[in-house]
Each structure stands twice: as structure tokens, then as C-alpha cells.
């Protein structure tokens, strides 16, 4: 019996149509069906944050959403926001601060950091730490990440003033 479901969605601005098994999560759909391997899978139970993407503008865990649920949605991944330049200041700040080592948490970290700064551009380091605490990084000890996000927050604030 064919239990697959047809879905159509926009991924990083590109229309995509596929048939998927209902049990396929959005992260695996992005990684294996679309070969957008920048979205990483670290725990598959919503704790580590490595699979964080945006769906219709909202930050979500792609391991806790089924691909079928993204039918008709706008999905944005690290590949998309890198392409548009939306997070280029964060990427540059991360590179300069060495706010990544192995890089596995980095796509989720960047998307989360960007959302924090959208919501609270003047967030201080303590607020940034709280807001990033759903994203696990084993390598850095977080300080360089917090510093980089804080620095970008300040720079974005100066630009918009």
C-alpha cells in the first residue's frame, strides 16, 4: 500500500514537489531528499538544536516536524540564508571569534542567533546565553559564540540608528 503523501513547498525560495512517507521528518527530508546537508541531526528528540531551520519565518526543530507538515510552507535552511546574505555579518563574526570548531552546531546556532537579534537587537550577553541555551555546542564553551552574537547585535543596532 502506498502511504506516501504528495507535498509542495518552497525551500530557500525554490518550489519543490515530492512524495514522502508520513514518518519522514523535515530534517531528513531536507538532508536526504533535497541533499541540503547543512541542516544537521544531532539528537532527533528536540534537545540539541542542530536541526534548527525556519518554517514560514518561525524557528523550528526540523527533527520534530514531519515533512508532510511542511506542505505549502516556506522553509529556509542555512544554505538559503547563506545565499541571501541575511546572516553574513554573523558568519563573519563567528569566523573572526572562532565561534565554531567542528561546525556541526553552527547552522542551527546561526539561525537561532539571527532570530534572537531580530527579536531583541540589544540583547546583552546574559540574554543571549539564555536564548542560545537550546543549542548544544560541545566544542567552544559558548563564550566565543555569545561574544560574536553580541558584537553583531551592537553593529546592527548602530546601522539602523
Amino acid at each position: 500500500m502506498d502511504t506516501t503523501v504528495a507535498i509542495e513547498l518552497a525551500v530557500n525560495g525554490t518550489p519543490v514537489g515530492r512524495r514522502v512517507e508520513p514518518r519522514l521528518c523535515l530534517a531528513d527530508f531536507l538532508r536526504y531528499d533535497l541533499e541540503l546537508t547543512g541542516t544537521h541531526v544531532g539528537c532527533e528528540h528536540g534537545v540539541c538544536g542542530a536541526c534548527t531551520v525556519r518554517v514560514d519565518g518561525a524557528l523550528v526543530r526540523a527533527c520534530l516536524m514531519l515533512a508532510v507538515q511542511a506542505d505549502g510552507c516556506r522553509v529556509e535552511t542555512i544554505e538559503g540564508v547563506s545565499g541571501t546574505g541575511e546572516v553574513s555579518d554573523l558568519q563573519q563574526a563567528f569566523a573572526e571569534a572562532n565561534a565554531l570548531q567542528c561546525g556541526f552546531c553552527t547552522p542551527g546556532m546561526l539561525l537561532t542567533a539571527h532570530e534572537i537579534l531580530q527579536r531583541e537587537p540589544g540583547a546583552d550577553p546574559a540574554r543571549i546565553r539564555l536564548a542560545l541555551s537550546g543549542n548544544y555546542c560541545r566544542c567552544t564553551g559558548y563564550q566565543a559564540i555569545v561574544d560574536a552574537v553580541h558584537r553583531v547585535g551592537g553593529a546592527r543596532g548602530r546601522e539602523t540608528r
Partner: peptide, 9 residues
């Protein structure tokens, strides 16, 4: 309650 990317859903 959990974290932002959970509370959005």
C-alpha cells in the same frame, strides 16, 4: 518551557 524553537511549534 523548553526553548524558543520548541515554543514556536
Amino acid at each position: 518551557v523548553a526553548h524558543l524553537a520548541v515554543r514556536t511549534r
